[in-house]
Design a protein around this nucleic acid. Sequence first.
DNA 1: TTAATTGCAAACGGTTTGCCACGTT
DNA 2: AACGTGGCAAACCGTTTGCAATTAA
Lengths: 139, 139
Amino acid sequence: MTIQHRQTKQRAALLDLLRSTKSHPTAAWLYERLRAAYPAMSQGTVYRNLSVLAEQGLVLVLRSGSTYDRFDADTSVHYHIMCESCGRVDDLPLSAETFRNAEAERVSGYLVTGHRIDYFGICPECQKSKKGGFPGTGT
Amino acid sequence: MTIQHRQTKQRAALLDLLRSTKSHPTAAWLYERLRAAYPAMSQGTVYRNLSVLAEQGLVLVLRSGSTYDRFDADTSVHYHIMCESCGRVDDLPLSAETFRNAEAERVSGYLVTGHRIDYFGICPECQKSKKGGFPGTGT
DNA sequence: TTAATTGCAAACGGTTTGCCACGTT
DNA sequence: AACGTGGCAAACCGTTTGCAATTAA
């Protein structure tokens, strides 16, 4: 018996905001932005709705390197690249290779449902500024 | 000015333990095991030493899906596959394709230092038992 | 000697949750 | 009316850290 979710302006605003950016924002960033329109909105609401949206397949959770999650409303199969210096995350316009799943399945015995490819490096801006130190990894 | 690390039996025991398993253990698992030999050892020591070993390149941190980290003393370039049902993590014996880094570099403008490929699916055991529910993801 | 390391325990911080009023259906 | 959702604040829990005592070099 699955829950019958209702429409709320808070959740709609959250999804709109997430769809309006390609910055793979954190929950904190989303919360801060949403408070501009809904000053009373709480963090709990943000987290609960992110969870609902993820459950509905409308949002991806990128638990991808730092201590906090990032979220992505682009639910198509695509890859990411993150900067080890400043922590920014970008989409990587490489074609998704779903055939890889079959290969992994054959080798592992798992029933493979998907895969993730994340690249790491230094983004163009950080290459210029030569700043170091990724927040949260101690590097 | 880098820190001159010393040899301690706690850190040696931690690395030995991590090298003795392919289960990509959590800090909690390591701590529990180490207490058998060193009843007074604290969690702080485990975390601090994991951090030192990671910094020395002797251990990889797999921040790969759950809410807590996993660690791997196999620092060669290799891929992982994790079960969405029980959370186990296995190595995936697929050849590492370092050429991919160059491709990502060209497309993104990043200075690419590496990449990670993680596959997701249901492990052989969970396929048999048909158990569901990945701890920590709400799935 | 000296500075890295430890055990202990408190603090940290992102995330989750209990409670009750409110809003959607 | 029924029940999902919101706001608020406390709880949660994996991880980090301050401190004084040890210990490796």
